[in-house]
Structures are given as C-alpha cells and as structure tokens.
Amino acid sequence: MALKRTNVYADDSDLTLIKDAAARLGVPEAELIREGIHRIALSHRVWDEPFVSDEETFDLGGPVDREDVRTAVVEGYEAKTRRNGGRAA
C-alpha cells in the first residue's frame, strides 16, 4: 500500500489522547491516525450495488419472544462457563 502525505488539523486534546494511546500500545502515533482514517473511510463507503435487493429477504426463523432471548442468553452463558473451566469470565 502506497502512503501519501497530507496535513490534518486536530484538537490538542485529541492529539494528547493519541500520544498516550500510542505510548501505551507501543506503536507510532501515525499508525493510530492511519487506522482512524481507514475506519472512517470504510464507515462512509457507498457500495455500487445494494447488499440486499427489495425482492430479497432474510428468514430469521419467525418472531422472537422474551423467553427465546432468555434461553439463548442462559445457554450462551453456560457454554462460556464450560469453555472457561467453570469460570464465567
């Protein structure tokens, strides 16, 4: 990937946060700034074609009620506890 130089104006408080994060992570400040630019660019990307056309739908298995959610959460928690040797975290 070829990099191009550009100038950006930023608030002192934001630059301080970037400097602190870079020091904590052990990476250059420029790397965090490039990552931020990349994330913003991707979040505002416009696709040439829609992900789903008006004719397409997703079948999510019908309506989900309160008990379905409760059951899924309990089962997920129990599975995580088993994976972690009895610890939930």
Rank of each mutant, 00 (worst) to 15 (best):
L3N: 10
N7W: 13
I40T: 06
S43L: 03
W47Q: 10
L60N: 08
L25R: 09
A22H: 03
A10W: 01
A2S: 12
N84Q: 08
V64Q: 06
K80Y: 07
V73W: 03
F58H: 10
D54M: 05
S53W: 10
F51G: 09
A22V: 01
E56L: 08
L32E: 02
I37L: 15
T16I: 13
D20Y: 04
I18K: 02
L17N: 06
D14R: 00
T71E: 11
R70T: 09
M1A: 14
R39K: 09
R34M: 04
A2C: 02
I40M: 04
I40W: 06
H38T: 12
D68F: 07
Y9N: 13
R66T: 13
A23E: 13
L32N: 01
R39E: 12
E75C: 02
R83F: 04
G85Q: 06
R24S: 10
A2F: 04
L60Q: 04
V64L: 14
F58K: 08
R24Q: 12
A79H: 09
T81Q: 14
T71A: 15
A10N: 01
E55N: 06
L15Q: 05
V73H: 01
G76I: 07
A22L: 01
A10V: 15
I37M: 12
R87G: 07
R45A: 15
E31H: 03
E35S: 10
V27D: 02
R34E: 04
R66P: 00
A10H: 05
V69A: 13
A2G: 11
Y9I: 07
R83N: 08
A23R: 11
D11R: 10
D65H: 10
G76C: 07
P28K: 08
E35I: 04
K4T: 14
Y77W: 09
V8H: 04
L42M: 14
V27S: 00
R82H: 07
L32V: 06
E55G: 10
P63S: 15
R70E: 11
V52E: 09
T57Y: 11
L32P: 01
G85R: 10
D54A: 15
P50K: 11
N7P: 05
I33V: 15
Y77R: 14
E49S: 09
L15A: 06
I33R: 01
N7K: 14
T6Y: 05
K19H: 11
R83S: 14
A22S: 09
I18M: 00
A22W: 03
K4C: 02
E49Q: 13
E56Q: 15
N7S: 13
A21P: 02
G36M: 01
V73A: 11
A88K: 15
L32Q: 03
G86Q: 13
S53I: 02
A30N: 04
V69K: 12
V27E: 02
R70P: 00
A30C: 01
E49I: 09
I33N: 00
F58L: 14
